[in-house]
Computed example of a mutant assay.
Amino acid sequence: MKTMELVFLLIFFPVTLSVKHSLKFFFTISSGVKNFPDFVVVGLVDEVPMGYCDSISNTPEAKQDWSQKMIEDDPQHLEWYTQECLLNQFNHRVQIDILKQQLNQTEGVHIFQRMNGCEWDDETGEVNGFIQFGYDGEDFIAFDLKTLTWIAPKPQAVITKHKRDRDRALNERWKNFLTQQCPELVKRYMDLGKSSLLRTDLPSVSLLQKTPSSPVSCHATGFYPHRAMTFWRKDGEELHEDVEHGEILPNHDGSFQMSVDLNLSSVTPEDWRRYECVFHLSGVKDDIVTKLDKTVIRTNCVSPSEFPAGPVIGGVVGLLLLLAVCITGVFIWRRRDNGFRPAKSSDSLSSDPSSVKDAVLN
C-alpha cells in the first residue's frame, strides 16, 4: 500500500530538483613570498570568478560583465568591496604575525588563508553559511553557525578559538552576514548573470589510456555548470572498486573538466563490453554514456605495426654521426681549455606583479 502511495505522489506531484548557488570569498595573506602581493582576495559565484583585489592595486576589479553591472548599478557596492579589501589586509597581517609568534616562527614562507561565503537553495530557500581559516596549507579554525562558536582541529588553534568565542558581538555579525547579506548578494548576482550562470553546456567525453596496462580514464571537458559527476558502471551498476575519481577542475574559458579512472588489470578483454562511463550534469535529463571500446580509446602508445622503422633507423644513424663529431669536439675543447668549465646560469626569474591577478584567477 505504501508503495502505491509513493507511486501516486511521484506521478501527480513530481519532485523538483533544487539547485544550490554559492558565493565564496578566498583571502590569502603571505609572509616571505617575493614578487607577489602579500594580500589577495578573489570572489566567486557558483565557482566562477567575479571579482578580485590585491595589496598592489587596492582597487576591486570586476571579472564578469554581470559583476561590473552590479557595481555600476550600485556604487555603494563598490565602496563596500574597497573597504573590505583594505580592512582585511590590516586584520590578516596582524593575525599572521600573531600566529608566527605563537608558533615561534621567525623565518620562512608562511600562508594564512580564509574562505567564507554561503550556499542558497533556489527551490527550498535553505541557506548554509561557512567560515574557515587555514595556515600553511592545513585547516586551522572554523565557525559553527549553529552554536556561534569556533572549532579548533589543532591544539595550536585553541587560543584563537577561546578568543573568538568570547567576542559574541563579532560572531553575531558573522551570523547576520552569512544568513542575510550573503544570500541576498547571491540572488542579485544570479539575476544579473543568469544568461551565463544558469546555462548548461554538455562536454566532450573521451576515453584515454597511457599504455595498454594503464587504467582507462574517462575524461569529460567543456561542461557547465560544475555540478556534475562522472562514474563507471558494469552491467548497469555503478562501480566503486578499482575506480579513482578526479577533482572537478576549471578550464580557461570558464567551463569545467573532470575524469574518472578504471583499473582493468583484472578484467578480461571479453568483459570489456560490460563496462561503460556515465557523465551526469545537474539540470540535464539525459546522461552521456560511453561504452568501453578499445577502438575508441585515445593513447600515446604506438603499436609495432605502426612503428615508423625507416625514419627512426635513419635518425639513429644521424645521431651516431653527430655524437662522433661532438666527442671529437669535446677532446679538442678539453685540450685547449685545460679542464671543464660549467656554463653560467641565472637563478633569478623575472616576475611581473601585474600578471598575478590572471594567474590567481585561472
Rank of each mutant, 00 (worst) to 15 (best):
N338K: 12
V325R: 07
D38H: 15
L281E: 03
V158W: 00
D358H: 11
S30N: 11
D136A: 01
F340P: 10
E184V: 10
D352H: 05
K69F: 11
D65P: 14
S345T: 10
Q181V: 15
A169S: 12
H280V: 13
T147A: 05
T290Y: 02
K344L: 06
R164I: 04
N171C: 09
T230C: 11
E84D: 10
M190F: 06
K291Y: 05
S67T: 05
P212M: 02
Q89M: 08
S18H: 05
C218P: 02
R173F: 07
V260A: 11
Y81S: 14
F25L: 12
I29G: 07
L320G: 00
L103P: 11
N128T: 14
M258E: 08
G310D: 10
L281T: 01
W272S: 10
S195T: 14
L202C: 04
N263T: 05
A324N: 12
S266C: 07
P353A: 03
L264A: 06
N104P: 05
L320H: 05
I327S: 06
M4V: 15
S345H: 11
S195F: 11
K24G: 14
E247M: 13
S217E: 02
A309K: 15
S196K: 12
L207D: 08
D253Y: 01
P60C: 12
W174Q: 14
L321Y: 14
G329Y: 01
T211W: 03
D201G: 09
S217G: 04
D136W: 01
V330I: 13
N58V: 01
S22A: 14
H280G: 00
F8G: 12
I141N: 03
V356I: 12
T3D: 13
V205Q: 01
L197H: 00
V45G: 09
V94A: 07
L262M: 01
L319N: 07
H240E: 11
P304L: 00
P215A: 07
S18P: 15
Q156A: 15
T3Q: 09
Q105H: 02
G117K: 03
L202H: 13
V127M: 02
I141Y: 04
V48P: 05
D287S: 08
D242E: 06
T3I: 13
G283D: 03
E184H: 12
L323T: 10
P203G: 02
D122H: 05
